[in-house]
Each structure stands twice: as structure tokens, then as C-alpha cells.
């Protein structure tokens, strides 16, 4: 299974690289689809069907919207020559990458072995969760009962995103 996931992850990396470098924007959008649908297969292999259902539908809707945008505007990528500010920001980005890598390596040595603290956290959730919440699907039990605040936050974030879209994209005022 690890081999399958490695192969699919490699495919995702290839798709992402092609999406950056493609000349035609429509094929770039389709290459973004490779990343999303490969992620669905990864979720199914890792036994997370809840995430797979959400990911496959959201990816399809996003692809529809992005294809509509590309067909409506231009299919060619506009290329502009980098000026001084471009070089400065590229250099800043590379320096920041190395600083963050250094901090990552320094902090990862202080942590426990990967997965140990996560499993300790998940133990009390899994033990008797069906009895405590009354829900046969453990994920729903955790999402709506143990972690109710998180779910309410997610729903409110979605409402706020809709408000932002309605406010920012509107060109004419409402009478």
C-alpha cells in the first residue's frame, strides 16, 4: 500500500509541476485536476471515505468554475519580464525557505516520534465513542460532539466566505 501511495504522490507532483509550466492555461487547469483526483485515491487507500466524498465533489465543482473562467478570459499565459522588485522578492523567498527549514530541523528534534502524541490523543476518542455519542459513524461523533466548536467555526467561516464574495464581487449597488 505504501508503494501505491508513493506512486500516486509522484503522479501528483508531476501534475503540479506541469500545471505551473504549461503554456496553455486550459491544460494547466486539467493538470490541477490530476492533483485533486489523485488525492481522492490516496484518501480511499488510507481508509478515509468521508474526506474522499467531499474531495471528489469539491474538486469537480472547482474544475468547472476554473474552466469557465479560462474559457471566458484568455487561454494564453501573459509573460512579463522580471524587474528589480521581482529579483528582490525571489531572493527574499529563497532566504525565507532556508530559515524556515533550519527552524523546522531544530524543532523536530525536540518533538516525540511521529504519531505517538497523536495516537495518545486519539485513544480516549475511539474507546467507547459509539456508546458516549450514540453515533455509529465515529467521524460524525467526533466532528459534532467532541469537537462541536470546530464544526460551528467551519460553518460560520463558510457563511463569511459567501458574504465576502457577495460584497467584493458586486459591481452595481443594490437598490
Amino acid at each position: 500500500m505504501e508503494l501505491a501511495i508513493s506512486v500516486i504522490t509522484g503522479l501528483m507532483i508531476l501534475g503540479a509541476l506541469y500545471a505551473i509550466h504549461a503554456k496553455d492555461l486550459l491544460s494547466s487547469v486539467i493538470a490541477c485536476g490530476i492533483v485533486g483526483y489523485s488525492l481522492v485515491i490516496c484518501f480511499l487507500l488510507l481508509k478515509a471515505p468521508d474526506l474522499a466524498i467531499v474531495q471528489i465533489v469539491v474538486d469537480t465543482i472547482t474544475l468547472i468554475i476554473m474552466v469557465a473562467v479560462v474559457l471566458d478570459s484568455s487561454r494564453e499565459e501573459k509573460y512579463s519580464k522580471p524587474d528589480t522588485m521581482g529579483y528582490v522578492s525571489a531572493a527574499t523567498g529563497i532566504i525565507l525557505i532556508f530559515i524556515f527549514l533550519w527552524f523546522f530541523i531544530a524543532s523536530i528534534q525536540q518533538l516525540d516520534v511521529l504519531g505517538k502524541s497523536t495516537l495518545r490523543m486519539a485513544g480516549p476518542y475511539i474507546e467507547g465513542a459509539a456508546y458516549k455519542t450514540g453515533s455509529a459513524n465515529l467521524v460524525t461523533g467526533v466532528v459534532f460532539d467532541f469537537r462541536g466548536y470546530d464544526t460551528m467555526g467551519e460553518a460560520v467561516v463558510l457563511v463569511t466566505a459567501v458574504l465576502g464574495v457577495l460584497t467584493i464581487l458586486r459591481l452595481k449597488g443594490k437598490k
Binding site: P49, D50, I53, V54, V57, V58, T60, I61, I64, G134, S135, A136, N137, V139, T140, G141, V143, E154
Partner: peptide, 21 residues
């Protein structure tokens, strides 16, 4: 069936939105 089988509010809501779209 969100509390019995995989899925739930978020997954089902997105599917319904997909059919409306």
C-alpha cells in the same frame, strides 16, 4: 445517514449543491 455511514453534513451538502449547479 451521516451518523451511520461515511459522509455527513459537509459531504451531502456539497453533493446537493453539485446537482443544483
Amino acid at each position: 445517514h451521516g451518523h451511520l455511514t461515511p459522509g455527513g453534513g459537509f459531504a451531502g451538502g456539497v453533493i446537493i449543491a453539485g446537482s443544483l449547479i
